[in-house]
């Protein structure tokens, strides 16, 4: 009975609506073909805006190409760009500045972020309100943060200098956070920590909330002190989350550009000139496109390699 009624209904519909039978066209394709059809736009887009530029950059990195002089005949340099970058003391200074920035921001953000997460996890009165307040800096645009911290750091009228003066009695105009050579590297660390500690806190909080309460109760009955509970339950179980936060912040800060560029533009001198700022100078101020392409590839390989090693370690921790 159903054998005959099924096709009849379809034929009726086809008769009533004389639209082109799209369904029939698609019916001719295999599942695999339909799958390809669906992902093709994404793949094409990825090829066009990610893979092709990457390959093109690799190509350029072996040449003397300058984007402001496109008519100069292209000369192949081999590895010359790479060798001169690795021998350039300015590059190494930028790498040092970047390392200083990455290491200190991660350290401080993990310390404060984890600490705040532990406090917020206590679920005191109004903890959700304070969570929102703490998360605010993270929601701002890095450009906004960079710009308004230049005002906060302003020695005469800046709130930061005023508060420091109020708390310590130091003359507020006696130091400039973004003008003094010894202070500037710490100014960018401070602002980044202020902005991204909430992010680390959020991830740690997710980790803390994933620990079931009965494990703590079991430990309490087993006479484990709060300290021992922290070391043998809380920390190991939050560690994968913490490592994930470190990974994200590490990659982000290794290629930090916007906030620092707006805050200090790499100054004073080149004390806060991070790798990506050097890169931008080489590429769009000195127009050494081939050279900066090589630098970009070096940075890419560095962060890619480091992240891969790190993810392997992370998986090991997760599997414990």
């Amino acid at each position: 009975m159903t054998d005959t009624s099924g096709p009849v209904v379809i034929r009726d519909r086809a008769g009533a609506v004389p639209a082109p039978p799209v369904a029939r066209v698609i019916r001719g394709l295999s599942d695999r073909a339909i799958a390809w059809l669906f992902i093709a736009p994404t793949i094409l887009l990825l090829l066009a805006i990610n893979v092709f530029p990457l390959i093109w950059t690799i190509r350029l990195s072996f040449t003397n190409y300058r984007a402001n002089k496109p008519n100069v005949p292209l000369r192949w340099l081999g590895l010359e760009n790479y060798t001169s970058i690795l021998a350039d003391p300015d590059v190494w200074q930028a790498m040092q500045a970047t390392a200083h920035f990455v290491i200190w921001t991660i350290l401080l953000e993990v310390l404060f972020g984890f600490g705040l997460a532990l406090l917020i996890d206590k679920k005191f009165r109004g903890h959700s309100f304070w969570t929102t307040v703490i998360l605010l800096p993270m929601m701002l645009s890095p450009a906004v943060v960079g710009t308004f911290w230049t005002f906060l750091f302003q020695p005469q009228i800046g709130l930061f200098n005023y508060v420091v003066a109020f708390l310590t009695g130091i003359d507020p105009s006696s130091f400039q956070m973004i003008g003094d050579v010894p202070l500037a590297p710490w100014a960018i660390v401070l602002v980044d920590t202020w902005m991204w500690t909430p992010y680390v806190m959020l991830i740690c909080l997710a980790g803390l909330r994933s620990i079931p309460n009965y494990i703590y109760e079991a430990a309490e009955v087993d006479r484990a002190s709060k300290w021992r509970q922290f070391w043998s339950i809380t920390l190991p179980m939050v560690l994968p989350f913490l490592m994930l936060a470190v990974l994200f912040r590490g990659i982000e800060n290794f290629k930090m550009f916007d906030m620092v560029n707006l805050l200090t533009s790499g100054g004073p001198g080149s004390t806060t000139e991070l790798a990506s700022i050097t890169l931008k100078r080489e590429a769009f101020e000195k127009w050494r496109t081939g050279y900066s392409s090589a630098f970009a590839i070096i940075l890419f390989v560095t962060v890619f390699g480091a992240a891969n090693i790190y993810v392997k370690a992370l998986n090991k921790v997760k599997q414990r």
Binding site: P212, Y214, E217, A218, A219, E220, V221, A224, S232, I233
Partner: peptide
């Protein structure tokens, strides 16, 4: 709980 000298087996496997 620590001062009571009791042992507790939970419904869930409360292992570390």
């Amino acid at each position: 709980p620590a001062a009571r000298d009791v042992a507790f087996v939970f419904q869930q496997y409360s292992l570390y």
